[in-house]
């Protein structure tokens, strides 16, 4: 009996894993396959899992007829700008919370953390009015400015820096280096791994964000890929292959980024998860 279980268990185990794999990957597989099918094939019955003849015409249509390059550029620009600026601002604040002693520090940090339970949507209505006052609706800045500082980013940098011994920084201080110089040429290089992690989080978060760009970027030329894709669905819902090509294009950049920097990404979730 026991021997039978020992024989069967691995088989059962791997069939569970295979089933999980199938359920997880099939939607993504079908998205790619359908984007390469000739028009109409994605709505044939029974459904096909691979194109009868591969075609790139839908991708071509997206770039020629539907100007998707513009949205690709908008998304890249916005995600890139938010990432660079917020890394700079959050790392300074995280450094201050981790390595400086001043009155009210811990209370301030605790109240920032407590604010994480406030859903971002609560701020959106007045934020819209505020940005409207500044004339920032329908500009890139309307997306960039609210993303320039994040409590989670500050938290992540602080946690990382707490583990780095003060003696390292004190040595530089003895040498008379200015505080900003210490931050710029000592702290930042030390933070490299966590900066990469936070950078991926921020880039992907901004790239994938939907609600705020939908609200702030009302002019079609300013829109990001997800917003443009949702609008495209309104006009081309029958055009399954075209919609799948658009979805692939939206998803692909962040998937590639994940594939290359997976290690940093997963380490970041674990850090945020365990300490949180």
């Amino acid at each position: 009996m026991n021997r039978l279980i020992n024989r069967l268990l691995p088989a059962l185990w791997y069939s569970l894993l295979a089933l999980g794999l199938l359920l997880t990957l099939t939607p993504l597989w079908w998205m790619i396959a359908a984007s390469l099918m000739p028009p109409g094939e994605a709505t044939s019955y029974p459904p096909r899992l691979w194109p009868s003849a591969m075609t790139f015409e839908h991708y071509r249509a997206l770039f020629t007829r539907l100007d998707l390059a513009r949205y690709l550029l908008n998304s890249t620009l916005l995600a890139g700008a938010v990432t660079l600026i917020s890394l700079f601002i959050n790392s300074m604040a995280g450094y201050a919370f981790a390595k400086f002693r001043f009155r009210g520090r811990d209370r301030l940090f605790q109240s920032l953390l407590a604010a994480l339970v406030i859903p971002a949507q609560v701020a959106m209505l007045p934020l819209f009015l505020l940005l409207k006052q500044f004339g920032l609706i329908n500009t890139y800045w309307g997306v960039i400015i609210p993303g320039m500082a994040s409590i989670f980013g500050i938290f992540l940098i602080r946690q990382y820096l707490l583990a780095i011994p003060d003696s390292l920084l004190d040595a530089a201080r003895m040498d008379g280096a200015s505080e900003f110089r210490i931050y710029w040429s000592l702290v930042l290089p030390l933070c490299r791994p966590i900066l990469v992690t936070l950078g991926i989080f921020t880039f992907m978060g901004t790239w994938n964000d939907f609600m705020w760009p939908l609200i702030v970027l009302t002019d079609s030329a300013m829109q990001t890929l997800p917003v443009a894709l949702a609008n495209l669905l309104g006009e081309h819902v029958q055009d399954t292959e075209l919609m799948m090509a658009g979805s692939v294009l939206t998803v692909l950049p962040v998937m590639l980024l994940f594939a290359v920097l997976q290690r940093y990404y997963i380490a970041g979730i674990m850090l945020g998860g365990i300490k949180g």
Partner: peptide, 19 residues
């Protein structure tokens, strides 16, 4: 592999699931 859907864009995969 199990993590892959997390990094995808919600709007894009919602479109996929619609189909």
């Amino acid at each position: 592999a199990f993590f892959l859907p997390v990094v995808t864009t919600l709007v894009a995969v919602a479109v996929v699931w619609r189909y």
